Computed example of a mutant assay.
Amino acid sequence: MATIKDIALNANVSASTVSRVLNNDQTLSVATATRERILKIAEELQYKAVKKRKSGHKAVTGFAPKIGIVMQQSLEEELSDPYFLSIRQGIESECNARGIISTELFRINNQNGDQISEKDGLIIIGKLNEEIIKNYSSNIENIVYIDDSPDEDLYDSVVIDFEKATNKVLDHLLGIGYQRIGYIGGRQREYREQHDSREIAFKKRMKKEGTFREEDIYIGEYTMTQGYDLMKEAIKNASLPDAFFIASDPMAIGAEQALREANINVPNEVAIVGFDDIEMAKFAITPLTTVKVHTWEMGRAGVNLLLDRMNGRKMPVKVTFPTEITIRESCGSKSSIQKPLK
């Protein structure tokens, strides 16, 4: 039987693109010719969705569940920071692999909760306002959260341990000789008073090390532009930290550009570490050391949890994914760097 990978190989595109075309994802920006080529190859290979084959997955035997994917990000925000986009693509890929084609995407910027009442289950990506959660979930029993766990005694969730990931970064930077480390991060517009878990963990660890400086903390929004602006603000101060932990790769890439414009070398004068390991991180002017988050797999796991719930499981499950540091050139060893004379 033909698979999505077979179609992708023949069409010379990614499996993700094939999945989204077959699921009629209207947010996918792809040339008409490419879309038509994918559909033609799928037809020629006699591709059939998994639910049409003999399947051992009870969750999709006998009915096609209607699943809603709920996000707070606008399309523009999602495209500017691929973290949440990758989670969504993982969800869509797993749905397609299991023969579930009745999925619908809702963005809270332009959708109302009453439009989701007929779904068999919801997968919610990221944080949502409590009142919005109630509107979305009032008539829906099966709900999975990805990248948030508002009530682990009630809902399934897929998360990462932000505190552990932050400490991995600081272990690395402190271990290669950096002591004065700054932080650039963000907060969601809806939660301006709620500190990010990485920010909290950073402050806790640096206070424990006895090297915490409040003036080395810069907070904005999770965009490349904000990373650029916040680093510009840091450069204006009398002295810069030797290294920065930056809470998203797009922010880190923006920050690197600000340093470059100020003729400050990365990593010879300031080292930086990002977070997410998005594809563009390795193509930055100075390839970016960053925390790798398995966002695609988190999305797939969310679908599996939801189908398991639909299959009768009552006990909520919380899955915590591991993270790891991808070492690149942006954080050279402090002990091996000689700063240029000024």
Rank of each mutant, 00 (worst) to 15 (best):
Q89H: 13
L174H: 13
I200G: 06
F321K: 01
N129I: 08
G175P: 12
Y191R: 03
Y222W: 06
A2Q: 01
Q338L: 00
D153E: 14
D25I: 04
S93R: 12
E118A: 12
V50I: 03
Y228P: 00
I125A: 08
A234E: 06
E152Y: 07
E76Y: 01
L122S: 11
L75N: 05
E77Y: 00
V159H: 03
L341H: 02
G56W: 11
S16H: 02
H195E: 15
G182W: 04
I116S: 14
R187Y: 00
N135D: 15
K164H: 13
L85E: 05
A243I: 04
H294M: 09
K292E: 09
N139G: 08
S330L: 11
V303A: 02
K51G: 01
F84Q: 05
Y83C: 10
T290R: 01
K282F: 01
Y228S: 00
R260P: 00
I272Q: 08
I140Q: 10
I285Y: 14
R20D: 04
S14N: 09
S14M: 09
L288M: 07
T27S: 14
E94R: 08
R53K: 15
D277H: 05
E163D: 11
I123F: 09
I181L: 09
E118V: 08
I7E: 04
N129G: 05
L9G: 04
E279W: 07
E297Q: 09
K314L: 05
L122D: 12
E92M: 13
G121E: 10
K232Q: 11
Y145M: 07
N96P: 04
S74N: 03
I337K: 05
S80N: 13
E92P: 02
Y228R: 00
E233Q: 15
A15T: 07
G312H: 01
I146F: 08
S335K: 14
A281E: 11
K342A: 04
G175D: 10
I246N: 04
Q194P: 00
Y218W: 14
T223S: 13
A271D: 13
S80D: 13
F84M: 10
M71A: 01
V13A: 07
R198P: 05
T223H: 00
L307A: 11
L128M: 15
I91E: 06
H172A: 07
G186A: 13
S102Y: 09
S14P: 04
I116N: 12
K282P: 02
D151A: 06
I246P: 03
G113I: 07
D308W: 01
H172Y: 15
Y178S: 12
F321L: 05
A234C: 08
F63N: 14
E329I: 00
L45Y: 07
K52N: 15
L28F: 05
L22D: 04
D308H: 03
S138I: 12
E36G: 01
C95F: 11
E130N: 13
P322T: 04
R180Y: 08
L85S: 11
I69H: 02
R88K: 14
M251T: 06
N311K: 11
T17Q: 05
T3R: 12
A234P: 05
S55G: 10
D81G: 03
I337Q: 13
T323R: 09
K236V: 07
A238W: 03
E209G: 04
K204Y: 10
E221R: 00
V144E: 09
D276R: 05
F106P: 08
G302P: 02
L174M: 13
D25N: 14
V291Y: 01
D196A: 08
C95E: 10
G227S: 01
